[in-house]
Amino acid sequence: MDDIQTRLQKSSRATRQDYFGKAICYSCIGLIILLVACILYFIASKGLATFTQNGVKFWNFLTQSDWKPGDVDKYGNPQVGALPMIVTSFSVTILAALLATPFAIGAAVFMTEIANKKGAKFLQPVIELLVGIPSVVYGFIGLSLIVPFIRGIFGGTGFGILSGTLVLFVMVLPTITSLSVDSLKSVPMHYCQASLALGATRWQTIYKVILKAAAPGLLTAVIFGMARAFGEALAVQMVIGNAVLMPKNLISPASTLTSKLTTEIGNTVMGTLPNNALWSLALVLLFMSLLFNLVVRFIGRRGNIKNER
């Protein structure tokens, strides 16, 4: 009996393994949290320096449309107005998502509900391949195909929001499609059976039962696609024209937050206003991706509550 008593109170190899495993997990998580915190702090401190050290008014940064960080206007204020880039970024993102969503959900419905196993097996790697193509390749294709095409049809230079939208459309299509496929696959089989057993047609079943049940997941897919489009730099930069002008129409050269960052960051000196202003753009981007993430979280939570009740 004594032996068992002492062994109950002593640590063993198994309990030490538990501690060791836990310690590894916590330190990995800790490192990741530290990294995220550092990035947030660095971008925030650099980005906010524009407003704290260089005296640019935050409101002007968001609402003015003159971007000449090196110059001052006639009152002596630096000209750091990011509105054209914010507008362009949102335009290409929203247009690309609007264009891609019907195609993506259509493809996802086809893959999960309509195609036979062979068709779905063929399409899956095609979609995955599209996700994996580097963005510079998309940009290059956009530059050599889409830009001349648009120039031919609408005139002008061919660079602009429309070209950017079309390139982003192709880029976010596979993202939205594959996430939509996951969400449609997670709709319980018995929903589908219940609907069919009630005499509903295949179309009624897809439209009224499956798509409705998968709606939170589909919305999440679209928002992930938008986050990707919003953050995409290289491919957009190659086709958008890179002129910091308020976009007048879909085919005038413009510039997004990301494309401005990639083209300018090498031409500025650390610590000066032009450099700090670019960090402010990065801060806006960071804030937007946080926002996208929060929206996804919110939708996920609401979807869960609905399913539990």
Partner: peptide, 29 residues
């Protein structure tokens, strides 16, 4: 299937209101 209905082993109502569950098939028709 409109003339020969079926009820399954596991209760499988749609995630809709009671009313919409009942009226689902009627509205489809």
């Amino acid at each position: 299937r409109r003339h020969i209905g079926m009820v399954f082993q596991r209760p499988n109502p749609f995630a809709k209101s009671i009313k919409d569950n009942i009226l689902f098939a009627l509205r489809n028709n």
